[in-house]
Design a protein around this nucleic acid. Structure first.
Lengths: 134, 134
DNA sequence: GCGACGTGCAACTCTGGAGTTGCACCCACT
DNA sequence: AGTGGGTGCAACTCCAGAGTTGCACGTCGC
């Protein structure tokens, strides 16, 4: 196990899928708080069976969010910031990209507005409110 | 519609759930690229029906990732960076928190290591490799 | 060796969400 | 008025994934 995807894109993919589940987020919380934890221990703090926890840990491991290490008869899990950080950066740059696009569109719209206003005086146009949305 | 959750926590919750689906991410991509788009238009660029797109847009809207605006007989959707940005920050701070905890644990472990080494010389101990994990 | 504890594997149930189809409604255009 | 394109609503199918149970195997402690 612990074969995280090669491409950064798929990494983000699996990380997002992994983080989508509340139980898995809770698991990460618990592991991070304790520094180290086993499936059995974690299951005690959750309303699900050990097997369910094991499956979740497998998903988290595949996403590179945790790493497993065997110590004697037990398997200890630790949190792994790298993948999470990568995803955070991806998301932040995406948000920035959206911002840029929106600013650009707004600029273009305003330019067109000025253009039409100076060119000819047609105040009789359908409302076309840009986006009241919320 | 477009009633985004009040608490920031639930916001992150819904955003993560929304971003978990590849089709929805593709939708956001398309909307961001075009600046504005309708469900019908978007469906033409995707291998799914318009209704499927509508449902996805409803989810994205509930997560605050898009905003809808009616223009004549069509409903146009635009991208909304705010929620995405919030989630990105949440994720980044979480990663930073993990980093802090790991550094702390490592520090403590090293201190304990030095302690036991100077206190008594017991080289006959089980391996206990910290975490080869991957 | 023996019991206790933790893990691993497999088969099973069941619900949520992704997707579809069909139809009714609204608005623009001529 | 009537037609076409876009939206909205509802009922339906289908399957991945979350969770369970049961049992076998390895490992620690005595």
């Amino acid at each position: 196990m612990t074969d995280q995807p090669h491409g950064a894109v798929e990494a983000v993919d699996t990380v997002l899928a992994a983080l989508a589940d509340p139980t898995r987020r809770r698991l990460l919380e618990l592991i991070a708080a304790q520094g180290e934890a086993t499936a059995t221990t974690l299951a005690r703090h959750l309303p699900v069976s050990r097997q369910a926890v094991v499956k979740h840990l497998a998903v988290l491991d595949a996403a590179g969010l945790v790493s497993s290490g065997r110590v004697g008869r037990e398997v200890r899990y630790t949190v792994r910031p790298a993948a999470l950080d990568t995803t955070a950066r991806w998301m932040a740059s995406l948000a920035a990209d959206w911002d840029r696009r929106l600013a650009h569109i707004k600029h273009v719209a305003e330019a067109a507005e000025r253009e039409s206003r100076t060119g000819r005086d047609d105040a009789s146009r359908p409302p076309e409110q840009p986006h009241g949305g919320t």
